[in-house]
Design a binder for these strands. Structure first.
Length: 547
DNA sequence: TCATCCCGCGCC
DNA sequence: AAAAGGCGCGGGATGA
């Protein structure tokens, strides 16, 4: 396999340069092609190169628009971000260089004013030089194998993100409209839909304030308090605790009003075109390695409108989610055999109950999440000692991550994505609190911030490794889907869940591929592990039929 | 008037 | 029923 690097020529915007490289980054051959001929050149390459480019989000869409799919790539910007920070590459030239053009956001905002006018032109980002720095950083690292897997998974994720945006999620505006009309009442120009307006009236009547504006938090808070409700805010959990006639209509109003503003008709018109919802995915957009999205709120599609996600006629949706992914990942990372045994059955939480650790599934769930997120108070913290006894290795791993964070140290995922350091203010606070003669308030504040950061690092190692597993799962699935007839393709990804739009005739084959890919992901990350990565897989016509 | 802050809540 | 980590977004309030 060879590398094929794409470079711009600043002097000639109408052409792009192609550099053939060996695996170690040695330049073998150079050529130039007209920019508009690039898709044809890409299509005709028979040697299945790994494309190397600065930014998949910029380079891949024109190829997709021309009907060209790229098998694999190396996204220099995403890989740079990982290697700059990874504990495994801290001694590399890449990590030790001062910040340069590969650092920072993809589209940096223009610099205001003249502060930087006299420092000369910005450093030019030479992709060949950058690639060679990255390859050297990996080759010289403590864990080249893990990093290579991580960089490949991250880059494949970028390809998938572009492909999913290109293909779009099948979306029925008719169903969406029917759902909204059913829940909210018919759409009305310049006013609330009827059911929402009726609820608003009920609230105003219950409070005895006919002119109250429910959409103003301060007004609503004042209105509640003057009606004798003892609340500090207008949050749902405070309203729920009220014993007052306003409670139920207000809760209903808040719920529906949220639906209207977040995923109502305006959202539909802004984001759904030609029967497809096309959010912009942002691979690596979260520090832990999870994806973010920008626009459309694709990672927060409420359950109430998922029925609008409908397969095309003759097609199906194959919806799969990894069951209790984070506990399973923790069991694998820590080599905790007892926790792996609990996950031997489809429902890991029930496995914890069956092992006699706690009484109910719900307790098992909250105890486990408490361990991963760092619950310090409440019922879930009370269950921690039992979890520690039953699963000592798993708990020790997250505890060690928490302690590291409290000290201001960094932690890493299984494949080497490393957490950021706490900011300067945090470190200063820690230093001030440990200095001679520090006030009791300072010490308390520093302890609290330390524990906050410890909860972040505790969660980072598990959430981040789960994100790596999910990337490997999806990358394996993408490859397997190529071997299935009828072009089934990924259309959605949500942390531990994937959705494939598939011709009905091959949907069962896709479901098999989904399972096989999960096994492959587990092996890729952890080798021979006793941990099962269980899935819930559903073949359905619409998203609400899953789960 | 516009940009930013903060609240509140949807998802995992 | 619980408490905690990660996000994005819309809306009003706020302040330049």
């Amino acid at each position: 396999m060879s590398l094929l690097l794409l470079v711009d020529d600043p002097a000639r915007p109408d052409v792009v340069g192609l550099r053939s490289l060996s695996d170690d980054g040695t330049l073998l051959d150079s050529s130039e092609v007209p920019t508009d001929a690039l898709p044809a050149v890409a299509r005709e390459r028979a040697d299945r190169p790994r494309w190397v480019w600065d930014d998949t989000a910029r380079r891949y869409p024109p190829l997709l628009a021309a009907g060209v799919r790229v098998e694999r790539c190396h996204d220099l910007r995403l890989c740079h971000a990982i290697l700059r920070r990874s504990v495994y590459t801290q001694s590399s030239a890449l990590a030790q260089a001062p910040p340069g053009p590969w650092d920072g956001p993809r589209d940096p905002a223009p610099v205001e004013g003249s502060l930087f006018d006299d420092v000369g032109p910005a450093a030019v980002a030479d992709p060949l030089e950058e690639l060679q720095l990255q390859l050297a950083a990996v080759a010289g690292s403590d864990e080249p194998g893990r990093l290579r897997l991580l960089l490949a998974a991250e880059s494949t994720g970028a390809l998938i993100a572009a492909e999913m945006h290109h293909g779009g999620m099948p979306w029925s505006v008719e169903t969406h409209d029917a759902l909204l009309t059913d829940l909210l009442g018919p759409r009305r120009k310049g006013g609330r839909p009827a059911k929402l307006e009726a609820l608003a009236d009920e609230v105003r009547t219950a409070l005895g304030q006919p002119a109250l504006n429910l959409d103003s938090q301060p007004d609503l808070l004042r209105g509640l308090r003057s009606a004798g409700c003892d609340v500090e805010s207008t949050r749902t959990w405070e309203i729920k605790a009220l014993e007052h006639p306003v409670r139920d209509p207000l809760l209903a109003y808040k719920k529906l009003s949220r639906l209207l503003s977040a995923n109502g008709w305006a959202w539909m018109e802004a984001w759904v075109h030609d029967g497809r919802f096309r959010p912009e995915y942002v691979p690596g957009g979260v520090v832990t390695g999870r994806w973010a999205t920008s626009g459309g709120g694709a990672l927060q599609l409420p359950a109430s409108i998922r029925g609008a996600v409908r397969a095309d006629p003759g097609w199906k949706l194959v919806v799969a989610d990894a069951a209790q992914l984070e506990p399973r990942v923790l069991a694998a990372m820590s080599g905790d055999g007892a926790m792996a045994a609990a996950g031997r059955q489809a429902d890991l939480y029930q496995g914890v109950v069956d092992a006699g650790i706690v009484e109910t599934r719900s307790e098992a769930k909250y105890a486990m999440l408490g361990a991963i997120y760092g619950a310090t108070t409440g019922p879930s913290a009370v269950l921690m000692p039992r979890l520690t006894t039953a699963y000592p290795r798993a708990v020790a791993l997250v505890e060690a991550a928490a302690r590291a964070g409290e000290r201001g140290d960094v932690v890493s995922t299984w494949l080497g994505r490393t957490s950021p350091r706490p900011d300067a203010a945090w470190q200063a606070e820690l230093a001030a609190a440990s200095a001679e003669g520090a006030g009791a308030d300072d010490v308390r504040a520093a302890r609290r911030r330390g524990r906050d950061w410890g909860r972040f690092t505790r969660n980072f190692v598990v959430q981040g490794t789960a994100a790596e597993w999910a990337l490997c799962w999806m990358a394996a699935l993408r490859r397997r889907l190529l071997a299935v007839d009828g072009r089934p393709h990924l259309v959605f990804f949500l942390h531990d869940e994937v959705m494939v739009h598939s011709p009905a005739a091959v949907a069962e084959s896709v479901a098999v591929a989904v399972h096989e890919s999960a096994v492959e992901a587990g092996r890729l990350l952890f080798g021979e592990t006793p941990v099962d990565f269980a899935l819930d897989v559903v073949v359905a016509d619409s998203y609400d039929q899953a789960k």
